[in-house]
Design a protein around this nucleic acid. Sequence first.
RNA 1: UCCGGUGUGGCGCAAUGGUAGCGCACUCGGCUGUUAACCGAGUUGUUAGAGGUUCGAGUCCUCUCACCGGAGCCA
Length: 466
Amino acid sequence: MPKKIRDKVNDLLNSEEEIANVIVKGWVRTRRDSKGGFSFLEINDGSCLVGIQVVADHNLKSYQAVAEHLHTGSCVAITGKLVASPGKEQKWEVHASEIELYGSADAEKYPLQKKRHSFEFLREIAHLRPRTNTIGAVMRVRNRLSYSVHKFFQDRGFLYLHTPIITASDCEGAGEMFQVTTLNLDQPPMNNGKTDYSQDFFGKKTALTVSGQLEGEIYAMALSDIYTFGPTFRAENSNTSRHLAEFWMVEPEMAFYDLDDDIDLAEEFIKFLLKDVLENCQQDMEFFNKRIDKTILQTLTGIVDCDFERIHYSDAIHMLEKSSEKFVYSVEWGCNLQSEHERYLSEKVFKKPVVIYNYPEGIKPFYMKMNEDKETVRAMDVLLPKLGEIIGGSQREDDLDALTARMKEKGLDPKEYWWYLDLRRYGSAPHSGFGLGFERLVQFVTGMENIRDVIPFPRTPKHASF
RNA sequence: UCCGGUGUGGCGCAAUGGUAGCGCACUCGGCUGUUAACCGAGUUGUUAGAGGUUCGAGUCCUCUCACCGGAGCCA
């Protein structure tokens, strides 16, 4: 047994019996005084959504000394006994025998009040917002989902692979990159009018990773099934409720999987995650269903039980062309699907997750496997109602000549990717993978509207405080 | 980056170009095994910033900044 520092509120609330000696440590959420000579304190320690009620008699030696500091936000340690509560709202409460004040919080200055705050305001006090019900619940669910990601892959024999954060390859052209350098930017060394990166720390131009996929493929071509789960960086000037400059991505990569196997895994993965969180975060999920999105439990349960719709890109285009819906952007074969098109398909036509696959070659990156029709590649996107794209994946091109040709078509220099091509040169094999945006998953599961509220410290253009 | 919207006490919001107000929070008092506690009283403002129109600007105009929503890019 690990050493006991104090009793966690969650454990006490789930107790089967009265306990003579308990120590609760946490932050005061509310205090209600009774002139009958005692106060009710609600103490929350983050171990669960609700706090535990503490009854503190004013005759306690320690009470008078700390009473004036027992405001919302202050931190206390309370010794006492766990007894059945006569109140309606809770089963258990703690009768205090001693109160120790760790840190007070000036009631007139503490920004968090015992009432609802807008999420915009809470983002300005990101160092205090984890003390709110909503952010606390989001982070507990986020934690469970993280655990669940590992559990899903570990149960299936996948290896957790740590791919590099700093990279010298513009992996897939997946957006603008954050440069990493130790050069003096006021006076960089020059060579023929250009910055001389041979003098930089790594001897070449480097940046933060936009994807661990290419490195993931290397290990999949040796260890068969791997996954990465780590931070990813995109320097796009994106200002939306679905984009972050720093986010976490889950990227499995599997040898011997074709596109169908890839889609099967993606569907199984999402269902596993939703089912797990419904079973293990009940209290928090009920909170989201009550306060954030009244349809969230119904939506998640429905997805766990349904079969994802799978349609060819070409069929999707036909459906959109035949539709009577008026779109801002017109549809034709070869174009990228716009948000409005994806939403129409997942929300109005199928009303469930939709997998669109076999996209035109021209709108997808060089590494995706060409189909026999020479027009489409084995790419797939998983679209969720309301949220949009949560997964993008593909079967990878495993033919050396085809891959080299496509790189040249896309204006990439095969020499730069010599190691990537070596995987096709020596012992190549069919393989596939996908990337899942972790914050978008948390968003979808909790019903939170803005991605900045499902990551502890959001990084977006012009925002890197805290 | 583009389009649209919004910036007013600590927070959430009102105010036909004419004396800046309400709710919550907070402080004090009352009541109470209370629990979004309740009742009464009180404190709180450079109306985002700069300039302009006007007898008079929170309100109209110009610029700047910030935030929100939508779009693009994508996960």
